[in-house]
């Protein structure tokens, strides 16, 4: 579905954000894109949507070059940005003006999503809170039935019940021909939602692995003492939260936050495990 080959991109010609970045993403997955501030998460998403142009390298999104911004590709992309603008109109008017561009737009699904998010339909978009607007734009994006859903910090501004609703809706929105990419700092919001983790660090992909692969190769557990097998640990109330190689094929739950810190701190120890 998405092929990125040797992508070089930078906001300044002298300082590249991505150097020879390559990866492939397939449909039927929810990818969690993680990285430090400034690692290039949003920029990678913008590259995928054709909102910025790379210095060199090639990109193939659903068989199109996103830089050309062709309508045939744009109608298959749903991009939920972190900062967005909605006009001063009611939801009906907004949908009437914009949904026509998406041939697969599902009106009943949109209505059901609004009901699930508890959005007042008759209100003008401009008078809604940031969280409500975000829910409208998420509902609209999902109702387009686009094949590629790109979300940049989608849970920012959502209250706690809405975050749970969001996870539920996203899990049900995944179909075999869809690819969902979610970039976030709020790793806890992605718990039990993503099936593949992509971590960006130092101009490239530091880790790309499915949750299954990660928990197959690593074990996340609480230990009282640290020994030489521990790759990374953080002190906790009853000892240490540790990441270790999964020598004994133990079952453990992926701790995204711990994994994230482990990748940043112990990249060299983790690299051989995933290569």
């Amino acid at each position: 579905m998405i092929k990125i080959n040797n992508l070089n991109f930078g906001y300044s010609k002298h300082q590249l954000l991505f150097k020879n970045l390559s990866m492939q993403l397939s449909n039927g997955h929810i990818y969690g894109l993680l990285g430090k501030n400034g690692a290039g998460k949003s920029t990678l998403l913008k590259n995928l949507a054709g909102l910025v142009y790379a210095e060199s390298g090639s990109m193939d999104v659903l068989g199109y070059n996103p830089a050309k911004r062709q309508p045939a590709l744009l109608e298959q992309i749903c991009f939920i940005p972190e900062e967005f603008y909605l006009p001063s109109v009611k939801i009906d008017a907004y949908v009437k003006a914009n949904a026509v561009f998406y041939p697969n737009f599902d009106h009943p699904y949109f209505t059901s999503l609004l009901a699930e998010f508890d959005i007042p339909v008759g209100q003008k978009l401009i008078n809604m809170s940031y969280g409500q607007k975000k829910k409208v734009i998420i509902a609209f994006g999902l109702a387009t039935n686009a094949k590629l859903i790109i979300m940049d910090e989608p849970t920012n501004g959502l209250d706690i019940p809405s975050k749970a609703q969001f996870r539920k809706i996203m899990a049900s929105a995944l179909t075999e021909d869809r690819c969902i990419i979610i970039s976030t700092h709020q790793v806890r919001d992605l718990d039990n939602l993503i099936d593949t983790v992509i971590m960006l660090d130092e101009n490239s992909v530091a880790l790309k692995a499915s949750v299954e692969e990660i928990t197959d190769k690593l074990v996340f557990k609480r230990v009282k003492e640290i020994d030489e097998t521990v790759i990374y640990s953080e002190p906790s109330l009853a000892g240490f939260n540790a990441v270790m190689p999964n020598f004994h094929k133990e079952d453990s739950k992926l701790d995204l936050e711990l994994l994230f810190n482990a990748v940043l701190a112990e990249k060299n120890k983790l690299k051989p495990i995933f290569n």
Partner: peptide
């Protein structure tokens, strides 16, 4: 010139 508005407009499925 404003990022939030530009994203929505550039991604509307119509040609340049």
């Amino acid at each position: 010139g404003q990022k939030p508005k530009a994203i929505i407009d550039l991604l509307i499925p119509a040609s340049t």
